[in-house]
């Protein structure tokens, strides 16, 4: 059944390229099947399915869920296949080097993929976060938050944050990439026994 899924990749191959073990990749396949069949049962995760799982709402636009989807969709064909899902999730593994997490976060925040996080992009993200959280701040306050952050992060003072400045900034504020690590990815089989149970059933089939 797994082989009928478009873009299915051998768990052993995926395990060899990521910090996951073969049985963990199999457990992730159970999760993938669930996510990829929540709206359209075609073995691929569509944007709406991803967003539904992340923010429990398929209609409300969420800039950040959109950005994560775009980065997971490595082939940029509008869907996340199993291999893309596992490789992208591996960034969030506790054993993945921090430099990869810092790089991923930079790409997330570089909304227009110019190689820089620009002031306008940061403001757009702050406004999106406020909107998502039903928080209202005056434009003055938003401008102040963005300005202060830029003064702090843009050490070269050229009005944009490059990857080097970003690395220095994260080194000073490590909490900024806390959400780039999912502790339980280290032992998915313990954290998600139901997925393992299912994958064992499949193994014996």
């Amino acid at each position: 059944r797994a082989r009928q899924i478009p873009g299915y990749e051998d768990p052993a191959t995926l395990a060899s390229e990521t910090p996951f073990t073969v049985s963990e990749v199999e457990a992730l396949f159970e999760l993938f099947k669930k996510l990829s069949s929540s709206i359209i049962d075609d073995g691929l995760i569509h944007r709406e399915e991803f967003q539904l799982a992340l923010i429990r709402n398929r209609n409300k636009k969420n800039l950040f869920a959109d950005r994560v989807f775009d980065l997971f969709d490595v082939k940029r064909n509008g869907v996340i296949a199993f291999g893309e899902f596992v490789r992208s999730l591996s960034i969030f593994h506790p054993n993945t080097p921090e430099v990869d997490k810092i790089d991923f976060a930079f790409k997330l925040y570089d909304l227009r993929q110019t190689g820089f996080i620009e002031r306008e992009e940061l403001k757009e993200m702050v406004l999106a976060l406020l909107n998502e959280s039903d928080l209202v701040l005056s434009d003055d306050v938003v401008e102040t938050i963005v300005d202060k952050t830029f003064v702090d992060a843009d050490s070269k003072g050229d009005g944009k944050i490059d990857t080097e400045e970003w690395k220095e900034f994260v080194a000073r504020y490590p909490s900024l990439i806390k959400n780039m690590t999912l502790p339980y990815l280290k032992d998915i089989t313990l954290a998600f026994p139901s997925f393992v149970m299912n994958s064992e059933v499949e193994d014996s089939e």
Binding site: V68, L122, F169, S175, I177
Partner: peptide, 25 residues
């Protein structure tokens, strides 16, 4: 004086960036 938050710290709290939500039932 109000504490001025780090904008990146603020946006890192987005639900859309909390991948653990993918694992919730």
């Amino acid at each position: 004086r109000p504490v001025i938050m780090n904008a990146f710290e603020l946006i890192s709290t987005s639900q859309g960036l909390n991948l653990s939500n993918l694992f919730e039932k």
